[in-house]
Nucleic acid binder design. Structure first.
Lengths: 206, 206, 206, 206
DNA sequence: GATGAATGAGGTTTCATTCAT
DNA sequence: CATGAATGAAACCTCATTCAT
C-alpha cells in the first residue's frame, strides 16, 4: 500500500522480485560486454524481457541499476575472497610465501569471474563521484583486512609504519592482479605473480 | 619556423601552427576540468577562439584532439621525468633508498602538473581501444626505462626475474604515486611514500 | 443507506460508497495542491488507500474523477452561496448597497474554501471541452440566479436589457471576486470590493 | 565568436534571424490551433521547416518559444490598442458613452486577431508562474492606462477611490470583452457590449 | 580559408491504463 | 473483488559533424 518512494517499486510480489533480479542480471551482462555508456535503458529492459516502463518502476535511472549491480558484484567478490582466505593456514610455521601466493591466487580467481564488469567499474569510479564514494568504502574494507592480517602477524612483520604498509601492499597487489587478469601482457602471468609474491614477502618479513 | 625564407608563405603556416596549438591547449584545459565527454567541440573551438568549422579543418574529429593533447602530455611528462633522473647520482656508493626516494619524488612532481588530464586519460585508456594502444606504448617506455635501470645495477639487484620485476616495480610505483597525487587519502602522503620506498628497496637490494 | 434492509448486503455497498468518496476527496486534495496534470492516478489511489486497479473499477479514467470532484465542488459552492443569500433581507426598504455587499462577501467566503481547486478548474475549463460544457451549465445557473434577482426587483432596477445586464453583472462580480481571492494584488481587497459594490449599485439602481 | 550562453544561438547571420522568426511564427500557429501542451518541439521545428536541433539552438526549451510568442503578441495587442485610442476625441464635450463604446470596440477588434493564442495564454497564465509574472506586468500596463484616463478626466469622474476603480473597470471590461470574443454565447454580442458600456458610464460619470 | 547554421539519430524518462494473480 | 506489475508510446533534449555562404 505504501510505496516508500512513489517512484520506484518495492517488490511485494514474487513476480516483482524476479523481475527486479532479471533487470540486474541483464544490466550486468550488458555493462560488462558493451560498457555502461554504450548500454541504454531500453536495451537493458529488452534483455531482461520487460518494458522500459517496468525498468523505471524498479530503478530511478540507469545509474541506480549500476549501483545495484555494483553491490551484487562487491558482495560476490568479498565472499569469494573470504572463502579463499578461510582455506589458508595461518599458523606461524607455515611458509609465508605460500600464504601470500595463495592469497594472490584467490584474488586472481575472484577477479576472473566478472572481468568485463570490473573494467566498467574502474571507468565509473573515475568518472562518477557517487560510484567513487561507494568504491572507496569497499577499498577501505580491503585495506582494513590487509591491515588486520599484518597486525595478526605483528611479531614477524617487519615494517616501520603498519598502516601505510597495509595500503602500499593492498594497492600493489590489486594493481598487479589487475595487470594479470585484464591486460593482454606480453609477459607470462606466472612470472608476474612470482615476482609480486617475492616483493611482498621480502618487504614484510625480511 | 624558417624565417630565412620568403615571407609571404610562412605567416600563413605560422598562424596555422599557432591556431592548432591554441586548440590543443584549450582542449587540454577543458578536458582536464570538465572531462572528455562533458566537453563538446563547440566549446573547444570557442575557447580556442576559432569557429567549429575551423576546428574540423585542423582535426578530423574530437578524438583526434584528445590524441594530440595526449602526445603533448606524454612528452611533457617524459621530459620532466628525464630531467629529474638526470639529477640523480647513480654511482655505486650512493644510498639506494635515497635514489629511489628521489625517483618517486620526481614522479609525484611530474604528475602534479596535469592532475585533471591524468584522470581523464585513465578513463579514456579504459574506454577507448585506440587510446589504450597509445598508452600501452607509453607504459612500455616506462617499463623499459625501469628495466634499464635494473640491468644497469645488475650486480646489486637481487631478483630472480628482472623483466617481471621491472613490471612489478613500475606498476606498484605508478599506483602508489597515483594514490598520493589523486586520492584524498586519510593517511599522509609522506608515510605512503616512505613505505613504498622501503618496499622497493628491500625487494631489489636485500 | 437503507439500514432497515438485510444486513449482509448493505455493508459491501457502504464500503463501496466510502471508497469512492475517499478517492474523490484524495483527488480533490491532490488536484488542488499540485494541479491536475501534476497528479497521477497512482498517487490518487495511494492517497485514498486503494490500489491503482481499484481506482479503475470506480472511475473509468482520470478525468472521470475530476468531473466527480467538480460536481462535489459545485454543490458545495452553490449551497454555501444559497445559505448566504438566505440570510439577506430583500424587502424594499433595505439598503441596496448593503445587500450587494453582503452578496459579494458570501461569494468571497465561498471561494476561499477551495482556492486551489478553483484555479485548476479554470485551467481545465479552458483546456477541456467536456469540462467547459459542464461549467457553462454551472455558470448559466449563476446567471439565471442573477437574472432572477434582477427581475424580482424589477421596479427598482433601471437597465435597458435585463438579460444582458444579468450576464454583465455576474461576470464582473465573478472576476473581481477572483481577483480578490486569488491574486496577490497590491491594492487592498476592501477597496476593490467597495468600488465593485459602488459600480453595481449605481448601474442597477440609479 | 562569443555565444553569450553557449546554449542558445544569438543570430549573427541573416539566415539565422529568418530561421528564428520562422520558428516563432510556426509556434504561434500551432499553440493557437492545438494548444501548448498538445504541441511538441518536433512539430514546431517541422512546421518552421527546420530540424529539432535547430530549434534547440535558438530556444532553450518549449517554454522559451512560448515566451517569445507572448512578447510578440503583447506588442501587437498594445500597438493595436494604442492606434485605436489615438483615434478617440477626448475633449470634454464629446459623449462619454461614445468614447467608452469606441474603446470597447477597439479591444474587441484587437482580441479577434489572435483568438486561439489568447486562450492558450489564459491557460499558461494559470499554470505557469513565470508566464503569470510576465502577464501581470502586462495587465499592470493596462490598469495604469485605465488609471491614466480616469485621472485625465478627474473633474467629471465621480468615484471614491480612483485606483481601485481603475482595476474594477479594467477587469470588468476585459472579462466581458473575453466573453464576447471567445464564448459561443447565446446572447448577442451587441447586447452585452451595450450593457457593459452603460454600466461603466453610469459608474464613472453619474 | 573561415564561419556558424543546420542536421537528426539516439538516449532518457513518464504515466494512463490493462490484466494476470 | 482487490492488487500492483507490466505496458509502450511519446515527449524532451544533446552534440558530433557537415556544408552553404
Amino acid at each position: 500500500m505504501k510505496d516508500t518512494d512513489d517512484k520506484t517499486r518495492t517488490p511485494q510480489q514474487d513476480r516483482s522480485i524476479k523481475t527486479k533480479q532479471a533487470i540486474v542480471t541483464a544490466a550486468m551482462e550488458l555493462f560488462s560486454n558493451k560498457g555502461y555508456h554504450q548500454t541504454n535503458t531500453k536495451q537493458i529492459a529488452a534483455a531482461a524481457g520487460v518494458s522500459t516502463g517496468s525498468f523505471y518502476s524498479y530503478f530511478t535511472d540507469k545509474k541506480a541499476v549500476f549501483i545495484e549491480v555494483l553491490k551484487y558484484y562487491n558482495e560476490a567478490l568479498l565472499s569469494r575472497v573470504d572463502a579463499s582466505l578461510a582455506e589458508i593456514n595461518f599458523d606461524n610455521n607455515s611458509d609465508k610465501k605460500a600464504v601470500i601466493s595463495h592469497l594472490v591466487d584467490s584474488l586472481i580467481l575472484s577477479h576472473q569471474v566478472y572481468t568485463g564488469f570490473h573494467k566498467e567499474l574502474s571507468i565509473m569510479q573515475l568518472s562518477d563521484d557517487e560510484i567513487k564514494r561507494l568504491m572507496d568504502e569497499q577499498y577501505n574494507v580491503g585495506r582494513q583486512i590487509t591491515l588486520g592480517y599484518l597486525q595478526l602477524d605483528k611479531e614477524e612483520v617487519n615494517v616501520a609504519d603498519v598502516e601505510a604498509a597495509a595500503i602500499v601492499v593492498f594497492e600493489s597487489v590489486s594493481t598487479i592482479v589487475d595487470a594479470i587478469v585484464f591486460s593482454s601482457r606480453s609477459i607470462a602471468a606466472e612470472r608476474l605473480k612470482s615476482e609480486l609474491v617475492n616483493m611482498i614477502a621480502k618487504y614484510l618479513y625480511d
